[in-house]
Design a protein around this nucleic acid. Structure first.
Length: 418
RNA sequence: GUGAGUGUAGCCCAGAGGUUUAAGGCGCCAGGUUGUGGCCCUGGAGAUCGAGGGUUCAAAUCCCUCCACUCACCCCA
């Protein structure tokens, strides 16, 4: 038997209400802030992600789905949403719009990893990107959206972790200092951290190993190495967050996995035990230039839908009640079947959802079907009804039945609360 | 990539080498007399026991290899 590929899953109708719930929150929230929806392809030129400076991160080095298409073009299933949005920004000259351009997306991303709780090979992200302005007020706006998003979903308890990792002017000095500090402890570091020291020193800071954490505690802080501009930016951001009354925690050990972040980085972690982070983002002032554009500052975040869902379910959030099932049309006999078909079709023409019985089942079986489909009404057409051009309208909750002329059914149903 | 646990019908699961023609519950289908659901009763369909190989007179039950699932690490949404 065929199965969905590892780390992917079918989202069955019974799960859809959760997805719709989140989607609707996303749409109304973004509308509120003037962010516009865009979607980018699932496949991209793989170089969009593997560009020069992108090395050193696992997500592009070992987790990308890369393949050649039949024309020999090397493509990647997108592992994240920001680079594609920036590509679209450049490709379609969105820099000609009033800046900053505020965009959001929601869609599938792919990473070849071993699945675990809240981690899938195909997962879905909701993200926003505000491109074209370096004002820390924009960072504050983005963080506020993230906060309001979680609140609107009903997630009450979370903390916003904030840090600044500087820019290409000041970060190298910091990295040097970090390396210098850590090389003194090299022997005490865990195996992973030994390679981090070589490949990606920033990540030393957020190792979960106990020893490493102790060492990280006293490590040099990015904040102490920021250049004047980055410092001002970071301070203003904190000031703005204060004005907006957004609580945050400075976390000098917060760094982010993607290579392109500059200055602001932030993460939001619900307090309910979810093993994996739910939302993360930051500023990426060099990315668009790296993609061949003019230097263009930008800031954004991405949230993992599956992880959000996990959290929501754990909290047992109440979903809006599902719409009632369509009117079910039962019939008895061949002639009645013809009439039932015509009726179903005309009801739909009047905008009334209708499901017609199929096959040759007993009335009992047909009503059972109606019951299983959660129809609030069943229409019954048999020989008697056919002769008088009537139909029986049965209320499935009360069991009450009325005989109504076929020609008036649509009107009656429209007046009834379905 | 590393480590641990698990894999019996659509779902939950009994079963730990020999009357198992693999049990039960949910769900599904059909009946419980003539055209009526949700409760109850009866019956039925549905499982090459994750796949492949091996041990044995005998394997769902033991061994090996894959595969998948779950969880953790790594990494990240």
């Amino acid at each position: 038997m065929y199965k969905a590929p590892r780390g992917t899953s079918d989202i069955l109708p019974s799960e859809q209400p959760y997805w719709k719930y989140i989607e609707q929150k996303v749409i109304s929230l973004c509308q509120l802030y003037g962010y516009q929806f865009l979607s980018t392809p699932i496949i991209e030129d793989s170089r969009l992600f593997t560009r020069k400076r992108a090395g050193g991160t696992d997500i592009v080095d070992k987790e990308m789905y890369i393949f050649k298409d039949r024309g020999g073009q090397e493509l990647a299933l997108k592992p994240e949403g920001t680079a594609p949005v920036c590509r679209a920004y450049l490709e379609h000259g969105l820099f000609n719009l009033p800046q900053p351009v505020r965009l959001y997306y929601i869609g599938a991303t792919f990473r070849y990893e071993r699945p675990q709780a809240g981690r899938y090979r195909q997962h879905h992200q909701f993200g926003i990107e505000a491109i074209g302005d370096a004002d820390p007020a924009l960072d504050a706006e983005v963080i506020e959206i993230a906060q309001r998003f979680l609140l609107s979903l009903g997630i009450q308890e979370f903390s916003i972790q904030l840090n600044s990792i500087g820019c290409k002017a000041c970060r190298p000095q910091y990295i040097e200092a970090l390396k210098r500090y850590y090389s003194a402890y090299e022997d005490s570091l865990c195996l992973d951290c030994k390679t981090r020291l070589e490949k990606n020193p920033l990540r030393l800071l957020d190792c979960k190993n106990e020893r490493c954490q102790e060492i990280a505690e006293k490590a040099p802080k990015t904040a102490d190495f920021l250049c004047r501009e980055c410092q001002t930016h970071f301070h203003s951001l904190q000031e703005y967050l204060g004005i907006l009354d957004i609580p945050f925690q400075l976390n000098h050990r917060l760094v982010r996995g993607l290579d392109y972040y500059t200055r602001t980085v932030f993460e939001i972690q619900p307090r309910k035990e979810t093993p994996q982070g739910v939302l993360g983002g930051g500023r990426y002032d060099d990315l668009i230039e790296d993609l061949g554009g003019k230097p263009t500052p930008a800031v954004g975040f991405a949230a993992g839908i599956e992880r959000l869902l996990l959290n929501l379910k754990e909290q047992g959030i109440a979903l809006p009640p599902p719409p009632k099932g369509a009117v079910f049309i039962a019939f008895l006999g061949k002639e009645a079947k013809n009439e039932a078909m015509k009726l179903a079709s005309s009801l739909r023409g009047d905008g009334i959802a209708a499901i017609e019985s199929v096959g040759d089942k007993s009335l009992k079986a047909q009503l059972k079907q109606a019951n299983g489909r959660d129809s609030s009404y069943t229409i019954i057409i048999g020989k008697e009804e056919l002769e008088t051009q009537n139909a029986v309208l049965r209320n499935m909750k009360s069991g009450e039945q009325k005989t109504i002329p076929l020609s008036q059914l649509a009107a009656v149903l429209k007046q009834t609360r379905l």
